[in-house]
Design a protein around this nucleic acid. Structure first.
Lengths: 157, 157
DNA sequence: CCCGCTATGACAACCTAGGTGTCATTATGG
DNA sequence: CCATAATGACACCTAGGTTGTCATAGCGGG
């Protein structure tokens, strides 16, 4: 029944992984609320913030690329991008690779806006950073991206 | 400018923590979608699933307790609880501590329903458990609950 | 013992994140 | 050169989740 079970401890591991998911929910909600608390000062919705943040750390991207990167629908990202453009935070630049799908780039205002938001968030994060080791955070990142890719693959059943 | 900086490496750590949050978003969304895919078979909404899951691993609780535990509003949890009661998955039992606020307990059907859901999810999780060590998952849990508590405290500004 | 405070439950209104479905357009590659 | 796939735009919808309000009932202090 468990022919793919690589180790006897797998059951326990599975339990811990479930715990991880139990934490992700509340964490996501509180983080979102925190972002909402902060970002409105700049007039940014959570979605717009996400777009700006992606552009900030990845450089110019197309809308479909961003959707795939964040597991969001193309249309949703499009809307957020348009909102951001309406606010003058991003601009469209011609894409050498695809003539139809332009690259989205942060404007100077956008850079400044997302920079301010991220800086405020970093200031909050800094309060706890001290207690955690880099190794722990590293492990955490590995586990989370593992889970993420897993959920990517099992789209079909 | 950084007078509260405990260590020179804090900046790097903060960056990694930010990465954690960047993963939490997509992860939460995909997990939710996966749950939606599975749970509808049992007729459970995400909220009801959350309530059942809490009762499953924590035992009987009151509605306000559950709200606090999951960082959800009292009223929302109440609705989900009532839904669950309507489905016969939970029942109300008198609370010795508070006459007004009854304890919510899983019924046999509820136990079975959430058990089935959790089992299906475990089966999915088991696919990746092998690659991750217990120490990594442990570290991940520590980091996440750390972050969670941080966000708890900074409710006020 | 009573009175005010607070916690609870119920209900309603609302918000917004995010998805889906569709259509027109335009590349782009075979 | 044409078929197919990818993009953008728009409309509509779902549902997760909050907030606000009200009535009620415990409870704790005077």
């Amino acid at each position: 029944m468990r022919e793919t079970d690589p180790s006897p401890a797998t059951g326990a591991l599975t339990d811990r992984l479930a715990e991880v998911f139990d934490l992700v929910g509340p964490l996501y909600r509180r983080a979102q609320r925190k972002v909402e608390q902060d970002a409105p000062l700049e007039g940014l919705s959570v979605g717009v913030r996400a777009v700006l943040n992606m552009l900030r750390e990845h450089g110019p991207m197309t809308v479909p690329q961003m959707g795939r990167a964040q597991a969001l629908s193309r249309q949703f990202v499009q809307r957020m991008t348009n909102d951001a453009a309406g606010l003058g935070l991003v601009e469209f630049m011609p894409n050498p690779a695809h003539k139809r799908s332009s690259l989205i780039r942060l404007t100077d205002e956008g850079e400044q806006a997302i920079g301010a938001v991220v800086e405020r968030e970093r200031r909050v994060l800094r309060q706890i950073g001290g207690d955690l080791t880099e190794a722990e955070i590293d492990a955490c990142l590995r586990v989370l991206s593992r889970l993420l890719h897993l959920l990517d693959d099992i789209d079909m059943d």
